[in-house]
């Protein structure tokens, strides 16, 4: 089953995302911020990365940039979880190399639908 690396500094969001994805049979690796995710990324070789945007240490945009610098993650789908509906953040995310986004608030069904969309 596909492995998903998820980064969020909010424990409840992390818990919800992780619970949902695990329930659907995915392998889930949790990270508490962008830096943590980046440190875990190389070893875990995730098939999909789902990251929050606003995080301490390294934010979601920064994480995308750093991950795209790794050969392993050159083409890996990376989704941003964002509450910013403004154009700015999204184009910033896309410019950094993010695949797409999921707008908060989302429910578990929407999350799963998006993941399935990306992973097929």
């Amino acid at each position: 089953m596909a492995k998903i690396l998820t980064a969020d500094d909010s424990a409840s969001m992390r818990q919800m995302v992780s619970f949902t994805l695990k329930g659907a049979g995915y392998d889930v690796v949790e990270a508490v911020d962008g830096m943590d995710a980046f440190n875990k990324a190389e070893k875990e070789k995730a098939d999909l990365v789902i990251t929050d945007v606003n995080m301490p240490n390294l934010d979601g945009i920064g994480l995308v940039k750093k991950l795209r610098g790794l050969p392993t993650y050159k083409f890996t789908p990376i989704l941003l979880l964002t509450t910013e509906s403004g154009k700015e953040k999204k184009s910033e995310g896309r410019a950094a190399g993010a695949t797409g986004w999921l707008v908060k608030p989302f429910n578990p069904d929407q999350l799963l639908a998006t993941v399935k969309k990306v992973l097929g």
């Binding site: 409840s12 969001m13 919800m16 606003n54 509450t83 908060k104 608030p105």
Partner: peptide
């Protein structure tokens, strides 16, 4: 604030 807003909306 952002986390509280996001979580509040989600939950």
């Amino acid at each position: 604030a952002h986390s509280i807003k996001g979580g509040g909306a989600t939950f």
